[in-house]
């Protein structure tokens, strides 16, 4: 199945773009999907950050199942305010 990844801040810089479309095996959880993404060499410097995740603009946990066509955001530590 195909999903879209969203990258921000350090992740966007590492990815070289704010989004990326990837094909993954189904079924798959957020955690499994993220592990696969972070294993790519361009993410070496950022892969140990404490991430949060969102699917289709809602926070989710790492055990959440990823559906075909989902938009998965991998969120590094925030610093608003």
């Amino acid at each position: 199945m195909q999903i879209k990844l969203l990258f921000f801040a350090q992740m966007r810089e590492a990815a070289g773009a704010g989004e990326r479309t990837v094909v993954v095996e189904s079924p798959i959880t957020v955690g499994e999907c993220v592990r696969g993404v972070l294993a790519q060499p361009e993410f070496t410097k950022v892969r140990d950050l404490p991430f949060r995740y969102a699917i289709n603009d809602e926070f989710v946990g790492s055990e959440q199942a990823v559906e075909d066509g989902s938009v998965l955001a991998i969120l590094p530590p925030v610093a608003g305010g």
Binding site: A9, P50, F51, A54, P77, A79
Partner: peptide, 22 residues
Amino acid sequence: PIWKHEFYQDGSSEWVLCAHPH
């Protein structure tokens, strides 16, 4: 989900990392 990129007088810049329960 807002990220702060600080720019410094010496020309460098850095993402500010906050300690969060991520």
